[in-house]
Design a protein around this nucleic acid. Structure first.
Lengths: 338, 338
DNA sequence: GTGAAAGCGCTAACAA
DNA sequence: TTGTTAGCGCTTTCAC
């Protein structure tokens, strides 16, 4: 049992007294080999510690068994779940993951894209529309299948998209508050990215003939707890009679919770607060946060599997829009309207 | 400007009326080429939309410009920062990132390791000792440089290690509590992984002749807020006179905060709580959490740069242990002992 | 079932 | 400076 390394198929062939080709047949298992020949070859492989060189194989076959994944960031519970789930599926099916984070930098995204196609990835999964939307045309005639996921705004029709029904998410939040009897509500939103969530929320109120006017929608200048705090303070100042707040992201809701405390409003007694995303923090706030959970892992799994099916069938993926359904998680921050 | 794809160096050479080699010289820029020849070649490249095939280049050169990264998970603020920082440096230096999450699964880690060496990565960075420690001997004679980081227990001497001075982290927490006059303290710990943090904590007390007995150390059965809650309840029951708690991880501290509330102890009035890691949640708790911040990004950057230097100099990395210094972040959960 | 030859697209060494 | 030859390690095609 020698050290791994420079041992090549040729070495194995010589030692086993056969041809490179026969070794290849044994290794890939694509062609039937006589048992005794196979035994000899396997013995030689074992003895020399042979490992196939995947780079050479890729050059010969044109396939790299590598999938590229674009995400805006990995430091968010949503995208980190996406990455993990993608990697789960890939690992299980024998593929490797080439990770590219785009970091709100379109130029960086473009560079990465060029790199990936030179590197002959077998497939590409693009999660998140933030940074890559503009560069999508570059991929118009890529030689490998591409699937988009976690696409929130204007899903392009050029590629299959597996994403969340964000409008439904907003609708669930709105319906929940309506069922609790809330009429005067405010929304803290990151716009334009969360427009669909807002639309869905409004739809739930519109069904009962209640409008959520633009004056009740407060844009968070900053997608952080501070941004949520500021927006909530503005909202409460503008409409003191508000009984509920929907934040289009949990982080904003965290800020809203702080704002309620600062303004001396009890939650949910005076004010109900509903978030979106179900990030880990929602379980540690006081009170715990009612929110809309989005099936990030399911979405990721659907997307990779679509992609790999396409790779293995050697035909483009079915070009469809697939919307995963979010669910409402009722915790302690929402209650009946006063 | 034709579509990207099957255009090869040969095509460019023919169109430019030169040899493949000349095209190669232009593309790589390693050899001087006469300006007018270069212009012709560049024109042909542009016209045909040629992109070099990196797989072929790798086979010829033996280098893939790809670095493998092992992390236990990506869904933690610590490791997601590591991943992002590693990717930052790699992107900037023209390398790609092959990400492997080990997920507490030694067998999975082993499979990944085999895959990576077949794939001829140029270097390997292993972050986190949880799953891979046992398999390290497999890498004893890898053909590429390896650096370990975020290694908490028993850093092996076989490879360079860039990690955090965890003992110092515990020491900082302990010294802080001592300076506030605390004498009777409890520790909530994930053991054995956080042994160093505990040792450092004890050292700070030992300096003043105060022992932190084993009976004051409560192992969290579960590395979660619930685990921290349970451990804190046990700690307070066992030693009601305790005035401070050190949790070896912020998540445990979150649970301790809940426990204090449940037991009717005010923080920091009756009880000071200090965490470790400075995760995002610490800024949203009530009160905000005093904790020890870990320079995850600095650590990651040091580690990759060490690795890439080794790749580029074509010699093994300097085998040293590098300990990054944590810092204390004083917030609202710690105060003078009663 | 196994062997021989050719080629994947590129770079490295040398020659011109 | 540029062209020629060889070869990276593997798979594919086609004889045998």
């Amino acid at each position: 049992m020698e050290v791994t390394g420079l041992v090549t198929m040729r070495d194995v062939a010589e030692r086993a007294g056969v041809t490179k080709q026969t070794v290849s047949n044994v290794v890939t298992g694509r062609v039937r080999v006589r048992p005794e020949t196979e035994a000899k070859v396997r013995a030689a492989i074992e003895a020399l510690g042979y490992t196939p060189n995947l780079v050479a194989r890729s050059l010969a076959t044109g396939a790299t068994r590598t999938v590229g994944l674009f995400v805006p960031t990995v430091a968010s519970s949503f995208y980190s779940e996406v990455v993990e789930e993608v990697e789960n599926v890939l690992e299980q099916r024998g593929y490797h993951l080439l990770l590219c984070t785009t970091r709100q930098d379109g130029e960086r995204a473009r560079r990465h894209m060029a790199g990936l196609s030179s590197r002959n990835v077998d497939a590409l999964l693009i999660a998140g529309d933030q940074d890559l939307a503009d560069h999508l045309p570059l991929l118009a005639d890529a030689r490998f299948p591409i699937v988009l996921c976690a696409w929130e705004t204007d899903a392009p029709v050029t590629h299959p998209v597996v994403t969340i029904d964000y409008e439904q998410a907003g609708y669930l939040a709105g319906r929940h508050l309506r069922e609790l009897g809330h009429e005067r509500v405010a929304v803290l939103a990151s716009l334009p990215s969360h427009q669909d969530r807002l639309d869905g929320f409004r739809k739930a109120f519109a069904r009962d003939g209640i409008a959520v006017p633009d004056s009740a929608v407060h844009v968070a200048t900053d997608a952080s707890a501070v941004g949520g705090f500021d927006a909530a303070v503005r909202a409460l100042a503008r409409m003191p009679e508000v009984t509920a707040i929907f934040a289009t992201h949990d982080i904003l809701a965290l800020g809203a919770l702080e704002a309620a405390r600062a303004e001396g409003r009890s939650v949910p007694g005076d004010l109900s607060i509903v978030g979106h995303d179900d990030v880990a923090e929602t379980r540690h706030t006081r009170p715990t946060l009612t929110t809309v959970a989005i099936p990030a892992r399911d979405m990721a799994r659907q997307a990779v599997e679509l992609l790999l099916r396409s790779v293995e069938d050697e035909r483009p993926p079915v070009n469809a829009l697939q919307l995963l359904r979010p669910t409402l998680v009722v915790r302690a921050s929402s209650g009946p309207a006063r």
